[in-house]
Structures are given as structure tokens and as C-alpha cells.
Design a protein around this nucleic acid. Sequence first.
DNA 1: TCTACCGACGAACACCGTTCGAGTCAAGTA
DNA 2: TACTTGACTCGAACGGTGTTCGTCGGTAGA
Lengths: 238, 238
Amino acid sequence: MSEIPLPPWRRAVAKRPRAAKAPLSQDQIVDAGLRIVMAEGIDAVSMRRVAAAFDTGASSLYAHVANKEELLQLMFDRICGEVHTPEPEPARWQEQIKEMARDSHAVMSRYNNLARAALATVPTGPNALRVSEAMLAIMLSAGMPPQVAAWSLDRLFLYIVADAYENSLHMENMRPGLETREYFEGFVTQLRDFYGDLPADRFPNIRAHATTLTSGDGDQRFEFGLDMLVDGLARYLP
Amino acid sequence: MSEIPLPPWRRAVAKRPRAAKAPLSQDQIVDAGLRIVMAEGIDAVSMRRVAAAFDTGASSLYAHVANKEELLQLMFDRICGEVHTPEPEPARWQEQIKEMARDSHAVMSRYNNLARAALATVPTGPNALRVSEAMLAIMLSAGMPPQVAAWSLDRLFLYIVADAYENSLHMENMRPGLETREYFEGFVTQLRDFYGDLPADRFPNIRAHATTLTSGDGDQRFEFGLDMLVDGLARYLP
DNA sequence: TCTACCGACGAACACCGTTCGAGTCAAGTA
DNA sequence: TACTTGACTCGAACGGTGTTCGTCGGTAGA
């Protein structure tokens, strides 16, 4: 497998040949971080907490990882490996784009709010690149102009990541006892009543459409925005 | 001006009648927070830092603000007051939607990464509601089905906020010495070279279109995504 | 066998959000 | 007028955070 050069702005912290046999490794650290993020969310991921998984102090991690930000980036790229990348079939490019978007969205939702790591910088890890390459291939093979494909890729991932991140932030406010479903229903009910009680002189439309505004779950809304984007994209086909 | 009821899930911390004349007030606290966010970014906004503007300790703030999260929400709603809300002109609804989107985006970009506060919860402050109401009015007056208008509103704001937030996170990584322009150019150059040096067997499309992928500044990309969304939206008009 | 040197790791630094409890002072009441 | 009440201020403290520093130990190469 060919080598990917390191992105130039990342400190080459791990490129020195490790001399002693190490009880710690970057992979293990990323594993531990992912275990914590799945169990307790990203706010539980602290350097001390990750180090505690190896019965050591936080400072031990800094030999393998430049800082917390880099650790989160590595964790994000790891989960990008779970996204499937189909072979392009130009005839059904729209459906393929949507499939990849749904898959990416599902993966990022599975790992709580790790999506923020993707918002913070341009993902340059091998797995993230693999996903981008596949999406680009689908659009180009469908005959999309390169500039349109390039920018669409950017905007689509922004949308996917932002939606996953927003959902994860909402989950964070959830009381630990409640189920996701009943928390969500209670939230929607409160919001609908709040909209319905707004003064009619200043907010006639929000008030009148309180029910419509609060209808639809996260998946329906994600799908609706995805349709908007892909429909808007299809207009650029020659 | 008619009263907006408090959203039910917010602790009614400020609804008690304040008896003594207060040297501190919620408005002043929000002002101080905004001053800090403009000067040094949202990460510089801490309860101690805000309190220091009044020569006091952090605990003094908790009489006027439930916690930091509420303070950020209040700050966000304050800046929403700077967004212009035009009267609907059905004939040019698309342009009006884009104008409001650009205006909202510009306001949120002006105040560094305060946009995250908007991602965290559904904005229910008076100014945020005013903006939503105006956008809803434009779409409904153009003949858009209510359900489409409702979900579009949600998706459009997600897009606006996410783009502003992403940009602000990039700004955060900037070295303090550099100008925004030269930092951005250096970043793009590095990224283009990185893409161009990728192995051709695994990433042929990214490698071949390295220049195209990295072309266009933040405004162009925002505008492109906005076009995608609004074009996709226009298809729902009867 | 000796000597570098890399990695582990405890301690410390400078922060953070929030809580607690004592003190202060104006307004309402007897 | 005297007393009580209660909101507000605010120093101190608690339990966290990311990161740095300096020491120490053990392995690899000479």
C-alpha cells in the first residue's frame, strides 16, 4: 500500500524511530479514546482519562500525540474507516451520493460529538481522504464539472458534519435517566407549545405553524436538506 | 411591545423582582462578554474574565445568569439583533433569502465563533425569533408549502451557522502575528501541495484536481452552497 | 561494559465552571 | 423607629482541565 505523506502543518511527532519497546502506542491511545467517546461522549475524553486506561498519567501520552487536538483528529480519521466507498455507477450518481452521505452521517452519529474534530480542520487522514476520493469519483464519473464537484464535496461534508455535531450537542443536554426517544418527544412538545404561545402580532408565522415547524425527526430533516443540496447540484450537469 | 414568554426549559432565574439597585445587570454582563468575544474570541470568554470587567469575582455573575451556557445564548441573541429583516417581496424571494443568509453569516462571522452557541440549542431569544419569522414570511409569501418552508428554515440556518463556526475555528488556529489573508494563502498552498503529492494509485481524483479542490475563498464557497440549497428549494414551488 | 537517549511519569502551573457561606445593605413591616 | 427579610456581592474553595518540566529507568548501539 502506497504511503501518504504527512500533512505539512502537522508536527512530525511520531516519525522518529521508536527505540525501546513501548507499552504505549498511538493506536492504543486512539482506541482508548474511542472507547471513552462511545461510552460517555466527547466531553469525557480528557488526557487524564485516556491515560487512566493505561494506569498512568496524562503526560505519558505526549510522547505519542502532539496534543489533545491531534488525538481527536486521529480518532476522527479512525472512524472514517467505517464509511463504505462504492464503485461509481454514473447512471445513479445522485443515489450514490446520498448513500455515502447517509453512511457518513450514521458513522459520525454513532461516535457522539467527535464530528467537531472534523469541523475544526480539513481532514487529511488516510481514511478521510479515501471517503473524499470516492465521493469525488462518483460526481466526476457522472460528468460533473470539476470545480462544481470540488465545491460540492466541501459543502456536502460541511452539511453532514454539522448536522451530526448539532445532534450530538442536543444529546449532551439530555438528562442521563431518560431514553433518547422520550427526551426528544418532550423537547418537541415544549418547543411547539412555546411557539404556539408567542405573541401573534410579532410572530404570526411562527405561531401559526408551530406544529409544522416542530414536526419531523432528525433523520427526516437530514434527508430533506440532503435532497435540497443534491437537487441543487444536479442543475450543474451539462 | 408584546412580551415573549420564557422557553419552559430555561430556569427562570431573572424573573424575580430585583429589589436593591444593582451595580450589575444582565445587559451589562452580556455587553462585557461580547466585548471579549470580539477582541479575543470565544475561548477567552470565561466567567472569571467577564467578571473581571467589573472588578469582581466570577460568582457575582451567577445572580444574573444561570450559568455560562445561558450567558452564551444571551450573547448570541444580542447579535441576532444586527440582522436585517426585509418586507417580503414574493417576486424576488430567492434573492431575499440569500440576502438574509449573507447578512446572518456576516453578523456571525463578525463575532468570532459565537456561532457555536446557536448550534448547541434551538435559539429562542427574541432577536433570533425575529430573524426566523422574517425568513419564514419570505418563503410563505412566495407560495412555498408550510412544511417545506419550515424544514428549509432549519436547514438554511444550520448551513449558515455551521459555515461561520467552521471558519471561526480555522481562524483560531492562526498564528497571532499573521494577517488573515496571508495565513489563508499559505494554508491553501500547503493543502494544494499535499493533495498534489498524494499517491496516484489510491487518490487519482484528489491528486489530479488538487488546484480545483483548493480554489475559491470562504465567501465563494458559502455562496456556492447557498445556491445549491436555494436551487434545491425552488423545485418545491407549485 | 559503558554511554547515550527515548519514553514513562509524578509534580506543578495556570487556568476553568460552579458552589458555599458569610457579609452588606435597601425595602417592607410591626 | 426597630426589626426582619431577602436579594446581591464576593472571597474561598472544590474538583476538574491541558500542558510543561525534570527526573528516572531501561534498552540499543559502540
